[in-house]
Structures are given as C-alpha cells and as structure tokens.
C-alpha cells in the first residue's frame, strides 16, 4: 500500500469495521542503529533523552 488510496482499496475488501477506512499515513523514520544518548536521572532511576537548557540569555 503506497498511499491512502491504495490502503482504502485494499482494506475495503475485508469488510472490517467502518473506522478502519479513515486513515492518515506517515513516513516511517529509518531505525537508527546508532546508540542514542540518555540522561540518567537518579530521582526516577530512568533514562531520558530530553534535558533542560537555558530559556533566556544568562550572561
């Protein structure tokens, strides 16, 4: 299924529930094999890939 139109054409045949034909498609990002960086938080004992940065001019 290359696009929404093909998706609808294909899935129409199966008689699936009506909600299945209202569809949006998105390109899938390639799986990154590189190691993603994490910030480890001792408080939650979890790894995060977001971190706080200054929101204004500091000096």
């Amino acid at each position: 299924m290359k696009n929404n139109h093909e998706y609808i054409t294909q899935l129409k045949k199966y008689g699936l529930p009506a909600d299945v034909l209202n569809v949006n498609s998105f390109p899938i990002k390639q799986n990154t094999t590189q190691k993603t960086n994490h910030l480890y938080s001792k408080i939650s004992r979890a790894n995060w890939n977001n971190f706080i940065m200054p929101f204004k001019k500091i000096i």
Partner: peptide, 11 residues
C-alpha cells in the same frame, strides 16, 4: 499498519 516504509493510522 505498516507497508512500503509508511505507517497507516486510523482516526
């Protein structure tokens, strides 16, 4: 569903 490097999501 996924197909041809695309993700299809219903709404």
């Amino acid at each position: 569903t996924t197909s041809n490097h695309k993700k299809f999501m219903t709404y």
